[in-house]
Amino acid sequence: MTAPRDKLLLLDTASLYFRAFFGVPDSVRAPDGAPVNAVRGLLDMIARLVVDHRPTRLVACWDDDWRPAFRVAAIPSYKAHRVAREVPGTTGEEEVPPALAAQVPVIVEVLAALGIARVGVPGYEADDVIGTLVAREVARPAAQRAAVGVVTGDRDLFQLVDDAAGVRVLYPVKGVKDLTVIDQAALAEKYSVASGQAYADMAVLRGDPSDGLPGVVGIGEKTAAALIHRYGDLAGVLAARDAHDRGLTATQRQRLHDAAAYLEVAPMVVRVAPDAPIGDVHDALPHQPADPAALGALVARWGIASSVNRVLEALEVPRA
């Protein structure tokens, strides 16, 4: 009898706790009045994900650097509009609501006490952590490879979708009760691209104002997808540009020439790193808290018993 396949859930944690913060009323507070809506919302999301998807492995992926120097060096406008105004310099801290920023250390402590793996790497974003862990899983022999679900509200990670390798994105519509499964069929239906790699190439051409990526002027999503479909990939589009291929209009060819400097560096900004320096990750779903005493103290301090107990019940361990 074939053993059931492992399931690995990779959480784009900041994406989820931002959603929790804005989705759970700020009237949800600790005994001392401090807001804990993001903490409780994230824990409730994790409990729901574990119940609904029954992973055997789970990692809370972390932004140790939300605006890495290597991306800023390539494209200085990368996320520049999100830098907190009071922080000097071209890099700096992300502008985060103070009530949310105060909860992030609590989230760190609770995840540690529960024994849920949390992985970040200096100089890299959570997207890169996810990309690296996906690449590691895909590199395993097929018989040992887990089915991977990437839970994120960030479309950038659609580039990791790979049906053959069993990698899907679970995209929240409202909370995590209603997740849209993004596979290659969904990419074809929504964006007219055939694969995660094609999505990344399309995203380079299209750009993304929310990340400060200009794209190629005059080439929007539909045109970008059509060019990738016609020429196979971004390299094929650029080869057609240089060869004066008649499938490109004179205007498109000129716009691609005008954007040559951007197109030279944009792929390494848009594409997630597959090789961030991550050590061994102990990502097995815990069946008991790593530190019950610390967890009990956190529950009492922050008044989060109901949310912690939902996680423990999902993990099928005794209540806190």
Rank of each mutant, 00 (worst) to 15 (best):
R241F: 02
Q197L: 14
Y262E: 10
A3L: 06
D127Q: 04
L111A: 02
Q197I: 11
S77G: 14
F22D: 02
K7T: 15
A260S: 14
G41S: 04
P318V: 11
H81C: 07
L179W: 12
V51S: 09
A185M: 11
V134G: 01
A186E: 07
Q103C: 05
D275M: 08
L263P: 01
A250S: 13
Q103L: 09
L187P: 13
G131V: 00
R40N: 12
V237W: 00
Y124M: 02
R19E: 03
V39D: 15
A290K: 13
D178K: 14
D64F: 08
G207I: 06
P122A: 09
V39M: 07
A60H: 05
D154T: 11
S77Y: 11
R40K: 15
A261E: 14
A294F: 05
V104T: 02
C61A: 09
V50T: 07
A305G: 12
G92Q: 02
A38R: 00
A225E: 04
V173F: 12
Q254P: 08
D64M: 04
A74T: 02
L170S: 07
A99I: 00
L100W: 03
E86I: 00
G212K: 01
Y262H: 13
L285P: 15
A3Q: 08
A198G: 01
E264C: 07
E264Q: 12
M45Q: 05
I219V: 10
D283F: 13
L213S: 07
D201Y: 04
A239M: 13
A34E: 11
D12Q: 09
I278N: 13
K79S: 05
S195D: 04
Y231D: 10
Y78H: 01
G215Q: 03
R253F: 07
V110P: 05
V181Y: 06
A142D: 05
R253Q: 04
A74G: 11
L100I: 01
M268K: 14
P97L: 05
K190T: 06
E189C: 10
T2F: 10
R301C: 06
G153R: 13
Y17Q: 01
W66P: 12
D242C: 13
G279D: 13
E109V: 04
V121N: 00
A80N: 02
A164N: 14
A186M: 12
P277G: 06
D283Q: 07
A314W: 05
A185N: 14
S210Y: 07
F22I: 00
A225Y: 11
D178W: 14
A139N: 07
K174M: 14
A200H: 09
L16K: 01
K174W: 11
C61E: 10
D154G: 12
W66F: 14
L263Y: 15
P25W: 07
P88I: 09
T13D: 09
R54C: 13
W62Y: 05
S192K: 11
A185F: 15
G23Q: 04
A165Y: 09
T90L: 15
H257F: 15
R48G: 06
A147R: 13
D12I: 00
L256H: 15
A113P: 00
L227W: 09
V181D: 08
H287K: 15
P277Q: 02
T2W: 05
P286Q: 05
A235F: 01
D283M: 08
